Simulated assay, not measured.
Amino acid sequence: MPRSEAGPLGVFGGTFDPIHLGHLRLAEEARERLDLEYVAFIPAGQPPHRDAPHSTAADRLEMVRRATASNPSFIVDDGEVFAAGKSYTVLTLERLRASIGPERPLVLILGADAFQGLPTWHRWREILQLTHLAVGNRPGHALPDGIPRGMASAELDALCNNHRDNDPTSVHQSPAGRIVPFDMTPLAISASQVRALILAGQSARYLLPEPVLQYIGQHHLYQPI
């Protein structure tokens, strides 16, 4: 993990089953809008909020490596893949904070839909003590002025109202504690859509990077058994 103090470190976790262009574009736009030095992609080993992934942790890690290899601002962290137990975000953030020290800003990148589920996360109230949150507005999941009513708990609504900062550069001013929304290009691509196309024998080209598509074909991932 780079230890330069030149800029905030973005953190982008997920199952990445498989990683696709929507993931990469979200990370790139967060990096640019918030002026992040790097974005660390962290594939989940054992995601706690989902069913078992359709491909192994080793395959998902390799696909992320291939997808990000051409971007020098993207790095890959395998800490969750090889950790014992569930892949809880708060534990990963504690590990990263211990690695980079108390002063360098951390920025956890989320879509607005994932942000609305924050109260279901393990030790979720501690997350803003460790990191900023960069919330990308996706189609149908905008975050205009706090949380849309009826879509989140009162606690999350209050959290957003107390910590929201519309200035993307604010993440450079402290190690953690701000919620910064940003608009992202609407790309309605999902991993489940990609898997369904491959399972049906249809083309998933132009939905995910070519090196990932090649890896899926070489290793017969997501295909009928």
Rank of each mutant, 00 (worst) to 15 (best):
M1P: 02
P2R: 15
S4H: 11
A6W: 08
L9A: 05
G10F: 13
G10P: 12
F12Y: 15
G13M: 10
T15R: 12
T15A: 08
A30W: 11
E32V: 08
L34D: 12
L34V: 10
L34C: 09
V39D: 05
I42F: 02
P53T: 00
S55D: 08
S55E: 05
T56C: 06
A57V: 01
E62Y: 13
E62K: 13
M63A: 06
R66L: 15
A67Q: 06
A69L: 14
S73N: 11
V76M: 04
V76H: 07
D78I: 12
V81D: 08
A83M: 06
A83D: 11
A83L: 02
G85S: 07
T89W: 10
V90H: 03
L93G: 02
L93N: 02
P102Y: 08
R104E: 01
P105C: 05
V107G: 02
V107F: 00
V107L: 03
L108T: 13
L108W: 14
L110A: 05
L110R: 04
G111K: 00
A114G: 00
F115S: 06
F115P: 01
Q116C: 14
Q116G: 13
L118S: 12
R123G: 03
W124Q: 09
W124P: 07
R125E: 15
L128I: 10
A134G: 14
L143D: 12
D145W: 01
G146W: 12
I147R: 06
R149Q: 13
G150M: 09
S153V: 08
A154W: 03
A154F: 02
D157E: 13
A158G: 00
L159A: 01
L159T: 07
N166I: 11
P168F: 08
V171S: 03
Q173S: 15
S174R: 15
P175L: 08
P175N: 06
I179A: 00
I179H: 01
P181K: 09
L187S: 05
Q193I: 04
R195S: 02
R195P: 01
I198Y: 07
L199I: 00
L199A: 14
R205H: 10
P211R: 07
Y215I: 04
G217S: 09
Q218E: 15
Q218C: 08
L221K: 15
L221E: 14
